[in-house]
Each structure stands twice: as structure tokens, then as C-alpha cells.
């Protein structure tokens, strides 16, 4: 079942008073997100990620198209009791303490006092907010601490689907690991996660499916593994060897079926276009006294994919 269904979604912003300027933030976006997985929405600055999430959260209204969440229109207020949302750089009432904020938001979901207290303690512990900090006003919190509170508040209603806008923003490496584990844990509990992020390592570590936006349009989408497989059919292999001088074998190797060779400090990485060329390449390596250390399907790095699909 799809938890998010977006069809032909467009959003035009108008700025200026007398002389209006128009900016098309989303341009006929189509997107489906399956349930029970972690979905990553990628894209450069201004690609339309936050606009998409804001439409799904009913913070802004689309100029055209439809957006459905959990089978209901995104603007359906009742549906919002089944989702969670942590905005980018969360902004909260800074005069409240972390405990008070959780209590307030728990009330908005109709939780009784006991449930609010239990969920507050449980979630603030889970996101790693020290007990001594929970009674302090949020205005005294660091960015990382606010991010942790932001994630905790998004889970207070035991949502079926959570939206995270740049969830690792402002976190130190330990914080990132904690939140990454927490997000992975959500998937294990059957909670669907929709996250936008710039941090590609987190995407690779967490996301099942991804979509890449470019200028408000969908540039690529699908299983992360499929997107990372090279365009040339997935039969290419990378052969990593050590103990050889790259320049000595370059001529011979590059003669085999269009293979390419890239020198490394210990040897070379050879890319062959077809598995059937592997034996010939290995023979050259052995003859040169080299040692095979790794053979794997050639894939784009997520960074390469990201740069390729987000460049105009």
C-alpha cells in the first residue's frame, strides 16, 4: 500500500507587490511511496523537497495536482493524528521546557495525562536527551538538543508514518548515529518513514527507496540499489588488485573488451564491461605478480548519482 501518493503536484510562489515575480517550486511532480519502508527525498537546494513536505503537512497549498497521505487528502486534519512530522531546524516554543512541549503536543493528540507522561519519558530517553535537561527551557538548548526534541515530539502519537525534514541536521556524529538507529528502529516496528536529507551516507545507510528532485521535477526514483547500478546494464564489474604497477599492465588490460584501469596507491581498479572478460583480466594480473583483493558489480556512488541527477 502506498502511504504517499502525489500526482501532478505544482506549486507556484508569487513574490513582490506591484511587479509580481513567479517562481515554480514544484512542476507537475508525480511520486508514490510504499509503506513499511524508509523513503529518502533527495535534491539540491531549491529542488522542491521542503515544498513537497510542506504540502503534505498542509502548511502550504498546491497550485495544481493532488497529494494524498495514508489514502486521505493531505489537508484532512483528522488524518494528521496518524502521522508525525519533524521540521528542518525545529522551531518550538522556547519558553517551554522539553517536558512541557511534549505534554502540550500530547494534548493536541488527545492523550491522557498518564500516556503523555509515559510517552514523554520514553521518547526523550530514546532520543538521548539527558534527564537534567528535560526541565530546562528550550531557549537554552543547542541545535542538536532541539533536533532530538523535534524527533521525540514527532513520535508522541505512535504515528504510522513520520516525515523528517533533514533529521540529522545539527547533530554531532554520536547524535547522528543515535538518530539513525532510531529511524532504522522505526522501520523495524512497521512505521513508514519519509525523510528529506542532504547527507548521502545516511541515505545509503537507511533508505530503501529514494527519489531525486531537480528543479521541482522528479529526476530519478526507485530502489536505491537499482539506481546505483550503472546504466550500462549491471554486467560491469570492478576488479581491485594490489601488488602491481598500474602503468605496466594498463596497455594489456585496456585491450580486453574496453576495460578501463585506474591507478590506486597499492595497485589498480579495473572496470570491465562484461563478466566474460574477468578470466582474461585475472590472467594478466597473475602474470604481473598482482593479487586480487575484490570483485564487485560496478555501481555509481550515491554522490555521483546525486550530482548527475541534480545538475541541470
Amino acid at each position: 500500500m502506498n502511504v504517499v501518493e502525489i500526482e501532478g503536484l505544482s506549486k507556484m510562489y508569487e513574490t513582490g507587490f506591484l511587479k509580481k515575480k513567479r517562481n515554480l517550486a514544484l512542476d507537475g511532480l508525480d511520486l508514490q511511496v510504499k509503506g513499511g519502508q524508509i523513503f529518502g527525498l533527495l535534491g539540491g537546494n531549491g529542488a522542491g523537497k521542503t515544498t513537497t513536505i510542506k504540502i503534505l503537512m498542509s502548511l502550504i497549498f498546491p497550485t495544481a495536482g493532488t497529494a494524498r497521505v495514508l489514502g486521505r487528502d493531505a489537508a484532512d486534519v483528522a488524518m494528521h493524528s496518524r502521522i508525525g512530522y519533524c521540521p528542518e531546524s525545529p522551531y518550538f516554543y522556547d519558553y517551554l521546557t522539553a517536558n512541557e512541549l511534549m505534554d502540550y503536543f500530547g494534548r493536541l493528540f488527545g492523550l491522557d495525562a498518564a500516556a503523555r507522561k509515559r510517552k514523554t519519558d520514553e521518547l526523550l530517553t530514546e532520543v538521548g536527551l539527558a534527564e537534567k535537561d528535560r526541565g530546562r527551557q528550550l531557549r537554552k538548548f543547542s541545535k542538536g538538543m532541539l533536533q532530538r526534541v523535534g524527533i521525540a515530539q514527532s513520535l508522541i502519537n505512535d504515528p504510522e508514518l513520520v516525515f523528517f525534514d533533514e533529521p540529522m541536521s545539527g547533530l554531532d556524529p554520536i547524535g547522528r548515529r543515535d538518530i539513525r538507529d532510531l529511524i532504522a528502529g522505526l522501520r523495524a516496528k512497521g512505521v513508514s518513514v519519509f525523510m528529506s536529507t542532504h547527507i548521502l551516507s545516511d541515505t545509503e545507510a537507511l533508505c530503501d527507496d529514494v527519489a531525486i528532485l531537480r528543479a521541482g521535477r522528479l529526476a530519478a526514483s526507485g530502489k536505491l540499489g537499482d539506481l546505483l547500478a550503472k546504466d550500462d546494464a549491471g554486467r560491469s564489474l570492478i576488479v581491485e588488485v594490489q601488488g602491481v604497477k598500474a602503468d605496466e599492465i594498463r596497455g594489456t588490460v585496456e585491450f580486453i573488451g574496453g576495460a578501463t584501469l585506474e591507478a590506486t596507491p597499492d595497485g589498480a581498479n579495473i572496470t570491465i564491461l562484461d563478466e566474460s572478460d574477468l578470466d582474461a583480466v585475472l590472467a594478466v594480473i597473475r602474470k604481473a605478480g598482482g593479487r586480487l583483493t575484490r570483485v564487485e558489480p560496478a555501481k555509481l556512488s550515491l554522490e555521483e548519482l546525486f550530482v548527475r541527477d541534480t545538475s541541470a
Partner: peptide
């Protein structure tokens, strides 16, 4: 202005 509405309207609050 302080964007606190972001968290509020994502909840079941009309």
C-alpha cells in the same frame, strides 16, 4: 514568524 506553526498544523489541529 518563529515557525512554531509548522509543528502545530502537522498535528490534528485545524
Amino acid at each position: 514568524e518563529k515557525r512554531t506553526v509548522y509543528s502545530i498544523f502537522a498535528k490534528p489541529v485545524s
